[in-house]
Computed example of a mutant assay.
Amino acid sequence: MERLCLDCGTLIRGRADKKYCDDSCRSNYNNRLKIEDNLVIKRVNNILKKNRAILVALNPNGKTKTTGKKLVSAGFNFEYHTYCYETHNGNTYIFCYEYGYLTLNDDNYLLVKREESLG
């Protein structure tokens, strides 16, 4: 049975379990896999950073109200956030790092900044 290098596709000679023709092809193949994974992570992180920046810009004092229309027009993506926090009275705040929002009614949102120590 012929075996081909997973990176360049050339015929492999040697051990039965060999997957690459040389160390260069092994490195290229594994680096390509890492790059594809990192692109997904980079894309999500960029969305989270943008969401946080929008919340910071619209909430300079730590607590304010705004509309969904303002958030969306600034480029906010409601599908991405870092965590949710449910209060004892059942309100759910959605956070992007330390900045978050609470859906009020219709198209209104309460923007907040969570003050906590990271220590």
Rank of each mutant, 00 (worst) to 15 (best):
C8R: 04
Y109L: 03
T82S: 15
L58Y: 02
K113R: 13
K49H: 12
C96W: 01
N105G: 10
R32S: 12
D106Y: 13
T103A: 11
V112T: 04
A53S: 15
A53Q: 15
L55A: 03
G75I: 07
T87M: 05
K19Y: 03
G100P: 00
L6Q: 14
Y85S: 13
L11Q: 08
E36V: 12
E36H: 04
D107V: 04
Y20R: 09
N46Y: 09
T66Q: 08
V72D: 03
R52L: 09
E115A: 06
L6Y: 10
C25E: 11
D22K: 09
K18Q: 10
K113E: 07
A16N: 08
R13S: 11
L118D: 09
F76S: 03
L4P: 02
E2N: 12
T10R: 15
P60S: 04
R26C: 14
D107K: 10
S73I: 04
A53R: 13
G9K: 10
N45K: 13
A53F: 05
E2T: 11
N59R: 04
K70S: 12
K34S: 12
M1Q: 07
E115R: 12
K34W: 07
L6R: 13
F95E: 01
Y93S: 05
N61Y: 14
C96L: 00
I35F: 11
K19P: 02
R43G: 01
C21E: 08
N45Y: 06
N28I: 05
T67Y: 09
Y101L: 08
K42H: 07
P60R: 02
Y101E: 02
E98C: 01
G119K: 14
Y29I: 02
A53K: 14
K42G: 00
G14H: 07
D106P: 01
V56T: 07
Y85I: 04
L39T: 06
T103F: 11
Y85Q: 13
S117P: 00
Y97V: 02
L6C: 07
A57D: 11
L39F: 06
D107A: 07
I47E: 04
N51K: 02
K19N: 08
C21T: 08
D37G: 04
T67D: 12
N59P: 05
D107T: 12
E86T: 15
S27L: 15
E116Y: 14
N89G: 02
N91Q: 15
N46T: 12
L48F: 06
L118K: 15
G14L: 03
D106L: 11
F78R: 12
I35K: 14
D7I: 00
E86M: 12
G75E: 06
Y93Q: 05
C25H: 11
N46R: 15
Y97K: 10
T67H: 10
T87V: 02
I12K: 02
H81I: 00
L6M: 13
E2V: 14
K19G: 01
M1S: 13
Y80N: 15
N61C: 00
G90K: 13
K65F: 14
T67L: 10
C84P: 01
V56M: 06
R13E: 14
T103Q: 10
G9M: 09
K69S: 08
Y101N: 02
